[in-house]
Simulated assay, not measured.
Amino acid sequence: MYHRHATQTVQSALDAQSAVVLLGPRQVGKTTLALEIAGQRPSVYLDLERDADRRVLTEPDLYLDEQVGKLVIIDEVQQMPDLFKTLRGQIDMRRRKGARTGQFLLLGSASNVLLHQSAESLAGRVRYIEMPPLLLDEVGEDRMNDLWLRGGFPDSFQADSDQNSLAWREDFLRTYLERDIPALGPRIPAATLRRFWTMLAHAQGGLLNAAALAEGLGVSGQTVGRYLDLLVDLMLVRRLQPRHENAGKRLVKSPKVFVRDSGLVHALLGLGSLESVLGHPVIGGSWEGFCIETLIAAAPIGTEPFFYRTSAGAELDLVLRFPSDTIWAIEIKRTTTPKVSRGFHLSVDDIKADRKILVYAGEREVPAGDGLRAMPLATAVEQLRNL
């Protein structure tokens, strides 16, 4: 068991809101977290993928009326979309009786679908929280290479060998492609979506080139957009948007695309060991994506992530704009040499960044000139957590 940062986030949200929706891909640890919380307060747990639990909610109001005073945890809630209207009535009824917080914890594996289903019914009554895979400061800095290679899905990370970890991720990919995605409605051949996902892994961290992807798959650009939207909605792919507020510059306006879990990147490319990753052309994109996901997850709630690139080639790998409007400019390099290009400093001036950071493969934080601080990933994470 690892202490998950999301546990405290969910507990705090339950103390302030009637219902909390915990979102995340399958197998990311949502159920484990929910059962941990259930052990700390009167609770009932229902899994809507089990027929017996679905039958319990055949007359949902009758059942939920008996659970007043308990936290009701409903797993895979998107399986019963009509339930949201019932939950709205239950929340309003309990509010009239003075119970305003900690009533329902809803777990879902389909972000956009779930948000669409619940937005109208539970508006003003619910808080949404995304749960990422295991993070560096949850497993420890000494396990960083394992986390990068295997990714953060707990069963993959905790496998007893790299070989078994890779086998788990292969099964995970197959299950999503053959069962989970078709269950959401899209009629996409599993082999086609697997090819698309693999193409994204090969281009990890590159600018989105929908035309090239469409040509490679033999489909239209519109179809590529639909495939990408699906994987983004499932929280399996990140579309990192460019920052383009400087009207005086010719800026790149295409997003960068990352497969969010580094372990899935490596599984899609058949890379089962650290040595195979280190010798593969994807190493730079894989490391950048791993760092970006780690840093975004550690940033305060409400932080907006971007990248910045001019047509002349000046670039920032990651720009974080915090709710306070403070801006951090972050360069990511898998090198032990704490140096950045002139384009980095030009970009920093363009966006008027308040802090300049180089995340590198060294072991200590050092000054790197002109206000730049070079530091290991774990140090950058710690500084973000302390904001």
Rank of each mutant, 00 (worst) to 15 (best):
M1F: 08
Y2E: 06
A6V: 15
V10G: 03
A13R: 12
A16C: 04
A19I: 05
V20H: 09
T32H: 13
L35Q: 15
E36F: 09
P42V: 11
Y45I: 06
Y45V: 08
R50D: 10
D51I: 14
D53W: 10
E66A: 13
V68H: 15
I73M: 05
D82F: 12
I91W: 11
R96F: 11
R96N: 14
R96W: 07
A99T: 13
R100W: 14
G102C: 07
L106M: 03
L107F: 07
S111K: 14
N112Y: 09
L115Y: 00
S118E: 13
S121P: 05
L122V: 03
L122H: 07
V126Y: 08
D137R: 13
E138C: 03
E141I: 07
D142K: 14
D142E: 15
N145F: 15
R150P: 03
F153D: 08
F157Q: 04
F157V: 08
Q158L: 13
A159G: 00
A167P: 04
W168A: 00
R169V: 02
E170Q: 10
E170L: 03
R174I: 06
R174E: 14
R179A: 02
L184R: 05
R187G: 01
F196A: 03
Q204L: 11
N209H: 02
L228E: 06
L230M: 15
L230R: 11
M235T: 04
R238Y: 10
K249Y: 15
L251R: 08
K253T: 09
K256L: 06
K256W: 11
S262Y: 00
V265D: 02
G270S: 02
S273I: 10
E275Q: 13
S276D: 11
E288R: 09
I292D: 06
E293V: 04
A299T: 06
T303M: 09
A312K: 13
V319T: 08
W328V: 01
R334I: 04
K339T: 11
R342W: 10
H345L: 15
L346N: 14
I357T: 08
L358V: 10
Y360N: 01
A361I: 08
E365D: 01
G369F: 14
R373P: 00
L377I: 07
